[in-house]
Protein backbone atom coordinates (compact mmCIF):
# COMPACT_ATOMS: atom_id res chain seq x y z
CA UNK A 1 0.00 0.00 0.00
CA UNK A 2 1.58 3.22 -1.15
CA UNK A 3 5.23 4.12 -1.50
CA UNK A 4 7.91 3.03 1.01
CA UNK A 5 8.22 5.13 4.15
CA UNK A 6 10.38 8.20 3.78
CA UNK A 7 10.62 10.51 6.75
CA UNK A 8 11.64 13.52 4.66
CA UNK A 9 8.13 13.63 3.23
CA UNK A 10 6.75 14.51 6.65
CA UNK A 11 8.78 17.71 6.63
CA UNK A 12 7.91 18.60 3.10
CA UNK A 13 4.20 17.98 3.73
CA UNK A 14 4.08 20.19 6.83
CA UNK A 15 4.19 23.54 4.98
CA UNK A 16 1.80 22.25 2.33
CA UNK A 17 -0.75 21.27 4.95
CA UNK A 18 -0.27 24.55 6.79
CA UNK A 19 -1.55 26.44 3.75
CA UNK A 20 -5.02 25.14 4.67
CA UNK A 21 -4.65 25.83 8.40
CA UNK A 22 -6.55 29.09 7.79
CA UNK A 23 -9.64 27.22 6.64
CA UNK A 24 -9.56 24.93 9.65
CA UNK A 25 -9.16 27.83 12.06
CA UNK A 26 -11.86 29.80 10.25
CA UNK A 27 -14.32 26.96 10.78
CA UNK A 28 -13.26 26.62 14.42
CA UNK A 29 -13.48 30.37 15.08
CA UNK A 30 -16.87 31.04 13.54
CA UNK A 31 -18.41 27.83 14.88
CA UNK A 32 -17.14 28.77 18.31
CA UNK A 33 -18.76 32.20 18.16
CA UNK A 34 -22.02 30.68 16.95
CA UNK A 35 -21.75 27.98 19.59
CA UNK A 36 -21.29 30.43 22.47
CA UNK A 37 -24.25 32.47 21.28
CA UNK A 38 -26.46 29.42 20.84
CA UNK A 39 -25.19 28.04 24.14
CA UNK A 40 -26.36 31.10 26.04
CA UNK A 41 -29.72 31.17 24.27
CA UNK A 42 -30.31 27.52 25.05
CA UNK A 43 -29.00 27.67 28.62
CA UNK A 44 -31.15 30.62 29.71
CA UNK A 45 -34.58 28.94 29.52
CA UNK A 46 -33.17 26.03 31.48
CA UNK A 47 -31.54 28.21 34.14
CA UNK A 48 -34.68 30.31 34.57
CA UNK A 49 -36.98 27.31 34.14
CA UNK A 50 -39.08 28.89 31.41
CA UNK A 51 -41.84 26.40 30.55
CA UNK A 52 -42.13 25.16 26.92
CA UNK A 53 -38.86 26.87 25.92
CA UNK A 54 -37.10 24.73 28.49
CA UNK A 55 -38.48 21.58 26.87
CA UNK A 56 -37.37 22.77 23.43
CA UNK A 57 -33.92 23.48 24.81
CA UNK A 58 -33.72 20.02 26.31
CA UNK A 59 -34.74 18.32 23.07
CA UNK A 60 -32.22 20.44 21.17
CA UNK A 61 -29.42 19.45 23.52
CA UNK A 62 -30.45 15.82 23.55
CA UNK A 63 -30.43 15.64 19.75
CA UNK A 64 -27.10 17.35 19.20
CA UNK A 65 -25.41 15.39 21.97
CA UNK A 66 -27.16 12.17 21.01
CA UNK A 67 -26.16 11.92 17.36
CA UNK A 68 -22.73 11.83 15.69
CA UNK A 69 -21.39 15.07 14.25
CA UNK A 70 -20.76 13.30 10.96
CA UNK A 71 -24.45 12.46 10.58
CA UNK A 72 -25.37 16.01 11.58
CA UNK A 73 -23.12 17.39 8.86
CA UNK A 74 -24.84 15.34 6.16
CA UNK A 75 -28.25 16.03 7.64
CA UNK A 76 -27.81 19.79 7.47
CA UNK A 77 -26.02 19.82 4.17
CA UNK A 78 -28.70 17.80 2.41
CA UNK A 79 -31.69 18.56 4.60
CA UNK A 80 -31.58 22.28 5.23
CA UNK A 81 -32.03 23.33 1.58
CA UNK A 82 -35.00 20.97 1.27
CA UNK A 83 -36.65 22.23 4.42
CA UNK A 84 -36.04 25.86 3.54
CA UNK A 85 -37.44 25.20 0.08
CA UNK A 86 -40.77 24.48 1.77
CA UNK A 87 -40.80 28.08 2.99
CA UNK A 88 -39.43 29.30 -0.35
CA UNK A 89 -35.94 30.17 0.78
CA UNK A 90 -33.27 29.02 -1.61
CA UNK A 91 -29.96 28.15 0.01
CA UNK A 92 -28.83 25.64 -2.58
CA UNK A 93 -26.26 28.13 -3.77
CA UNK A 94 -24.92 28.91 -0.30
CA UNK A 95 -21.26 27.93 0.05
CA UNK A 96 -20.53 24.58 1.71
CA UNK A 97 -18.64 26.41 4.44
CA UNK A 98 -21.92 28.01 5.51
CA UNK A 99 -23.44 24.59 6.21
CA UNK A 100 -20.30 23.36 7.87
CA UNK A 101 -20.06 26.31 10.25
CA UNK A 102 -23.78 26.19 10.96
CA UNK A 103 -23.64 22.51 11.87
CA UNK A 104 -20.53 22.81 14.03
CA UNK A 105 -22.00 25.91 15.67
CA UNK A 106 -25.25 24.17 16.56
CA UNK A 107 -23.38 21.06 17.66
CA UNK A 108 -20.96 22.94 19.93
CA UNK A 109 -23.82 25.13 21.12
CA UNK A 110 -25.52 22.14 22.72
CA UNK A 111 -22.35 21.34 24.67
CA UNK A 112 -21.73 25.01 25.48
CA UNK A 113 -25.20 25.38 26.95
CA UNK A 114 -24.54 22.43 29.24
CA UNK A 115 -21.24 24.00 30.23
CA UNK A 116 -22.88 27.35 30.98
CA UNK A 117 -25.65 25.77 32.98
CA UNK A 118 -23.28 23.57 34.96
CA UNK A 119 -20.92 26.43 35.80
CA UNK A 120 -23.65 28.83 36.85
CA UNK A 121 -25.23 26.15 39.01
CA UNK A 122 -21.84 25.35 40.49
CA UNK A 123 -21.57 28.80 42.04
CA UNK A 124 -22.60 28.49 45.66
CA UNK A 125 -26.16 29.60 46.38
CA UNK A 126 -24.83 31.52 49.39
CA UNK A 127 -23.02 33.89 47.02
CA UNK A 128 -26.30 35.10 45.55
CA UNK A 129 -27.88 35.35 48.99
CA UNK A 130 -24.99 37.47 50.21
CA UNK A 131 -25.38 39.72 47.17
CA UNK A 132 -29.10 40.12 47.77
CA UNK A 133 -28.53 40.70 51.47
CA UNK A 134 -26.13 43.51 50.56
CA UNK A 135 -28.93 45.11 48.59
CA UNK A 136 -27.91 44.19 45.05
CA UNK A 137 -30.51 43.70 42.33
CA UNK A 138 -30.72 40.30 40.69
CA UNK A 139 -28.96 41.64 37.61
CA UNK A 140 -26.12 43.07 39.73
CA UNK A 141 -25.86 39.81 41.65
CA UNK A 142 -25.63 37.84 38.41
CA UNK A 143 -23.20 40.08 36.56
CA UNK A 144 -20.91 41.00 39.46
CA UNK A 145 -20.96 37.91 41.65
CA UNK A 146 -22.17 34.80 39.79
CA UNK A 147 -20.82 35.34 36.29
CA UNK A 148 -17.18 36.08 37.20
CA UNK A 149 -17.06 32.96 39.33
CA UNK A 150 -18.88 30.83 36.76
CA UNK A 151 -16.36 31.89 34.08
CA UNK A 152 -13.46 30.48 36.05
CA UNK A 153 -15.33 27.25 36.63
CA UNK A 154 -16.23 26.97 32.94
CA UNK A 155 -12.74 27.36 31.45
CA UNK A 156 -11.57 23.74 31.72
CA UNK A 157 -14.76 22.52 30.04
CA UNK A 158 -14.52 25.30 27.47
CA UNK A 159 -10.95 24.30 26.72
CA UNK A 160 -12.04 20.73 26.22
CA UNK A 161 -14.86 21.81 23.90
CA UNK A 162 -12.65 24.03 21.76
CA UNK A 163 -10.18 21.20 21.25
CA UNK A 164 -13.02 18.77 20.52
CA UNK A 165 -14.32 21.24 17.95
CA UNK A 166 -10.89 21.55 16.35
CA UNK A 167 -10.67 17.78 16.02
CA UNK A 168 -14.25 17.51 14.75
CA UNK A 169 -13.49 19.91 11.91
CA UNK A 170 -11.39 17.13 10.41
CA UNK A 171 -14.71 15.75 9.16
CA UNK A 172 -15.52 18.79 7.04
CA UNK A 173 -13.66 17.12 4.17
CA UNK A 174 -16.61 14.73 3.79
CA UNK A 175 -18.57 17.64 2.34
CA UNK A 176 -15.65 18.58 0.13
CA UNK A 177 -14.18 21.42 2.20
CA UNK A 178 -10.46 21.72 1.57
CA UNK A 179 -9.35 22.07 5.17
CA UNK A 180 -6.28 20.34 6.58
CA UNK A 181 -7.58 16.78 6.56
CA UNK A 182 -9.00 17.17 3.05
CA UNK A 183 -5.67 18.56 1.92
CA UNK A 184 -3.84 15.67 3.57
CA UNK A 185 -5.94 13.14 1.67
CA UNK A 186 -5.20 14.85 -1.60
CA UNK A 187 -1.49 15.00 -0.85
CA UNK A 188 -1.56 11.34 0.16
CA UNK A 189 -3.20 10.11 -2.98
CA UNK A 190 -1.02 12.21 -5.25
CA UNK A 191 2.26 11.17 -3.65
CA UNK A 192 1.19 7.74 -2.37
CA UNK A 193 3.01 8.63 0.87
CA UNK A 194 -0.09 8.30 3.04
CA UNK A 195 1.62 7.56 6.33
CA UNK A 196 3.89 10.56 6.10
CA UNK A 197 0.98 12.89 5.30
CA UNK A 198 -1.08 11.66 8.18
CA UNK A 199 1.84 11.89 10.58
CA UNK A 200 2.36 15.47 9.49
CA UNK A 201 -1.36 16.11 9.83
CA UNK A 202 -1.51 14.62 13.32
CA UNK A 203 1.51 16.69 14.37
CA UNK A 204 -0.18 19.92 13.35
CA UNK A 205 -3.38 19.06 15.21
CA UNK A 206 -1.31 18.09 18.24
CA UNK A 207 0.55 21.38 18.29
CA UNK A 208 -2.64 23.43 17.94
CA UNK A 209 -4.46 21.44 20.64
CA UNK A 210 -1.50 21.77 22.95
CA UNK A 211 -1.23 25.51 22.38
CA UNK A 212 -4.95 26.07 22.89
CA UNK A 213 -4.87 24.06 26.08
CA UNK A 214 -1.94 26.02 27.49
CA UNK A 215 -3.49 29.37 26.58
CA UNK A 216 -6.76 28.48 28.23
CA UNK A 217 -4.92 27.19 31.27
CA UNK A 218 -3.40 30.64 31.66
CA UNK A 219 -6.87 32.15 31.36
CA UNK A 220 -8.18 29.76 33.99
CA UNK A 221 -5.38 30.60 36.42
CA UNK A 222 -6.16 34.28 35.99
CA UNK A 223 -9.88 33.83 36.49
CA UNK A 224 -9.38 31.58 39.49
CA UNK A 225 -6.55 33.48 41.12
CA UNK A 226 -8.77 33.89 44.17
CA UNK A 227 -8.76 30.18 44.85
CA UNK A 228 -5.75 28.92 46.75
CA UNK A 229 -4.52 25.84 44.83
CA UNK A 230 -6.09 22.78 46.36
CA UNK A 231 -7.72 24.86 49.08
CA UNK A 232 -10.63 22.50 49.70
CA UNK A 233 -8.09 20.32 51.46
CA UNK A 234 -8.89 16.82 50.34
CA UNK A 235 -6.79 13.75 50.51
CA UNK A 236 -7.29 11.63 47.47
CA UNK A 237 -6.19 8.21 46.47
CA UNK A 238 -3.76 9.82 44.08
CA UNK A 239 -0.16 9.52 45.13
CA UNK A 240 0.75 12.70 43.33
CA UNK A 241 -0.52 16.21 43.12
CA UNK A 242 -0.66 16.34 39.38
CA UNK A 243 -3.08 19.05 38.37
CA UNK A 244 -6.22 19.72 40.28
CA UNK A 245 -8.89 17.14 40.70
CA UNK A 246 -11.59 19.71 40.03
CA UNK A 247 -10.03 20.39 36.67
CA UNK A 248 -10.02 16.76 35.63
CA UNK A 249 -13.62 16.30 36.63
CA UNK A 250 -14.55 19.46 34.81
CA UNK A 251 -12.77 18.34 31.68
CA UNK A 252 -14.72 15.15 31.61
CA UNK A 253 -17.98 16.47 32.99
CA UNK A 254 -20.38 18.01 30.52
CA UNK A 255 -17.73 17.85 27.83
CA UNK A 256 -17.32 15.38 25.05
CA UNK A 257 -16.21 12.01 26.22
CA UNK A 258 -13.78 11.03 23.53
CA UNK A 259 -14.20 10.19 19.89
CA UNK A 260 -14.44 12.93 17.32
Amino acid sequence: MGAPFDISYIFSFLPKLLTTLGTTLLIVGFSLLAGILVGFLVALPRLYKVPVLKTFAEIYISFFRGTPILIQLFLFYYGLPEILKLVHVDVTRAPVLFFVILTYGLHTGAFMSEMIRASVTAVDRGQVEAAYAAGMTSFQAFSRIVLPQALGIAVPVFSNLVIALLKDTSLAFTLGVMEMTGKAQTLGSISQHFIETYIALALIYLVISFTLEKLLLVAERRLLRHEVPGSPARKTFGLQKNGSYRRMIAQLGPGKGGGG
Partner: peptide, 19 residues
Protein backbone atom coordinates in the same frame (compact mmCIF):
# COMPACT_ATOMS: atom_id res chain seq x y z
CA UNK B 1 -34.87 45.89 47.29
CA UNK B 2 -35.49 48.76 49.68
CA UNK B 3 -35.98 46.40 52.60
CA UNK B 4 -32.68 44.72 51.84
CA UNK B 5 -30.89 48.05 51.77
CA UNK B 6 -32.08 48.70 55.31
CA UNK B 7 -30.78 45.37 56.56
CA UNK B 8 -27.53 43.47 56.41
CA UNK B 9 -26.80 39.86 57.14
CA UNK B 10 -23.95 37.83 58.57
CA UNK B 11 -24.21 34.24 57.37
CA UNK B 12 -23.48 30.96 59.07
CA UNK B 13 -21.27 29.95 56.11
CA UNK B 14 -19.78 33.49 55.85
CA UNK B 15 -20.68 33.66 52.12
CA UNK B 16 -17.86 36.04 51.31
CA UNK B 17 -17.64 36.74 47.59
CA UNK B 18 -15.03 34.17 46.64
CA UNK B 19 -13.55 36.10 43.74
Amino acid sequence: HQLRQKTAMVFQQYNLFRH
